[in-house]
């Protein structure tokens, strides 16, 4: 097996699916950054530096897919909560369709 090739391929898959995973998680409820990272870790085996999530969230925000708001905490350290916009929910529905089609196409080929 060409381990390097598989690792590179997995790295690309990870990059491509992380935004989809974030959207699925944010579809349930609003999350703050650290909490969102933990949720990704619980549900996936993706090992990413936690800080890499923020550039991605910023892009999703720029694209109008998520929105954010700071909420003050008793500790004095506020949390920034992220939530899906209406456009984000619509985007997620479309991504789900594509993902299902892709999955079934791959399953057919693999058989």
């Amino acid at each position: 097996m060409n381990t390097e090739f598989v690792q590179n391929w997995f790295s690309q898959v990870k990059k491509g699916t992380l935004s989809y995973i974030i959207l699925i998680i944010l579809n349930e409820k609003e999350y703050y950054g650290y909490e969102l990272v933990q949720e990704i870790k619980i549900h996936t085996t993706l090992e990413v530096a936690e800080g890499t999530l923020y550039p991605l969230l910023n892009r999703l925000k720029t694209d109008g897919i998520v929105e954010s708001k700071w909420i003050e905490q008793e500790s004095g350290i506020p949390r920034k909560y992220y939530t899906l916009t209406a456009d984000g929910r619509e985007t997620l529905r479309e991504m789900k369709k594509i993902w299902l089609n892709l999955g079934s196409a791959i399953n057919k080929i693999q058989k």
Binding site: Y32, G51, T52
Partner: peptide
């Protein structure tokens, strides 16, 4: 945003020395 993340990470950490908790949080952030 980074400060908030590091604070939450140190809060959720398992009991260790203060330095270990902080170093773990910073390493996980990258």
């Amino acid at each position: 945003e980074v400060n908030s993340h590091i604070y939450e990470a140190t809060l959720a950490a398992t009991p260790q020395t203060e330095v270990d908790i902080l170093v773990d949080a910073l390493e996980s952030f990258g």
